[in-house]
């Protein structure tokens, strides 16, 4: 199927701002789905609330736009009740790790076969630029006019620590790599977390002297490095991209099948 066959083109142009990384992330995700040759009727996309959560409106899958932070809980019910479905969950940083933090760590722990795509723009965009648990210190936001002093979560360490069997970080500058990571994340049997560094020019870039989308992508180019690369070794300040964990571990729905067998045998 062509890319156009996976989208609800009547709703374009989309709601996201000029140069928003989320559009590029959607672009990469659609190409990953296309590469995998998935039937849109076999895909459910579940989202919460926020800029990222508008993604389901644009894809021609089964789509469920839920409550702030709760997407993974809804998705767990969907996957557990019909395990043959491919379940994709785009989330924002607040959605995934502030209000939804509890659901996030438990989804990781269960290792249920869902792909969580954390679109990290380090800000609450939809509500107008408040700081998030991924903003980190030294960021100016509408709720941090004197700058933030809150430390940020490291999504990769959190996901791995909580038990996700696949965790990877990409960026919307490194688009080919991002598509490849998404293909791996979706194909992976188990809970996959993929963090996408996704610029928000409107609310983050503007307030933090990072400029427009072009300048923010240049920043990602200059300030990230491949995991295990020489650049990353030489400069620990760089944000690393790549696969942080890729383990084969018992998947939750498959484990339940064993329980069903056990219960049937009495």
């Amino acid at each position: 199927m062509a890319l156009q066959d996976y989208i609800r083109s009547r709703f374009f142009p989309h709601i996201w701002c000029v140069g928003c990384g989320h559009g590029t992330a959607l672009n990469a995700l659609l190409r990953a789905v296309e590469t995998l040759g998935l039937d849109p009727s076999d895909i459910v996309m579940v989202s919460g609330i926020g800029c990222s959560s508008r993604m389901p409106g644009y894809v021609d899958f089964h789509t469920l736009h839920t409550l702030h932070g709760r997407a993974l809980a809804f998705a767990t019910g969907t996957k557990m009740s019909k395990p043959e479905l491919t379940v994709l969950v785009p989330m924002g940083d607040g959605d995934a790790l502030a209000i939804g933090g509890n659901h996030f760590i438990h989804a990781c722990r269960r290792n249920i076969d869902i792909t969580a795509i954390v679109l990290n723009n380090r800000i609450y965009g939809m509500t107008g630029g408040q700081f998030s648990p991924l903003s980190g210190p030294g960021v100016v936001a509408t709720t941090a006019p004197y700058s933030t002093y809150d430390p940020a979560f490291d999504v990769m360490r959190l996901a791995v620590g909580a038990g996700a069997s696949f965790a990877a970080r990409g960026s919307t500058y490194h688009v080919v790599e991002l598509q490849q990571l998404l293909v791996k994340a979706i194909s992976h049997k188990g809970f996959s977390v993929i963090e996408v560094l996704s610029p928000c020019p409107t609310h983050f870039g503007r307030r933090n002297q990072q400029g427009d989308s072009v300048e923010m992508l240049e920043w990602l180019k200059a300030n990230t490095a491949k995991l295990g690369s020489k650049a990353a070794e030489e400069n620990p300040e760089l944000i690393t991209r790549g696969i942080f964990v890729e383990d084969e571990r018992p998947e939750y729905c498959e484990q339940y099948e064993r329980i069903l067998e056990q219960a049937r045998e009495g």
Binding site: L3, I7, G23, T24, N27, L30, S213, L217
Partner: peptide, 11 residues
Amino acid sequence: RLCEYWCPDLA
């Protein structure tokens, strides 16, 4: 195709 892949608007 990098332009195609980067384009946030799928345009």
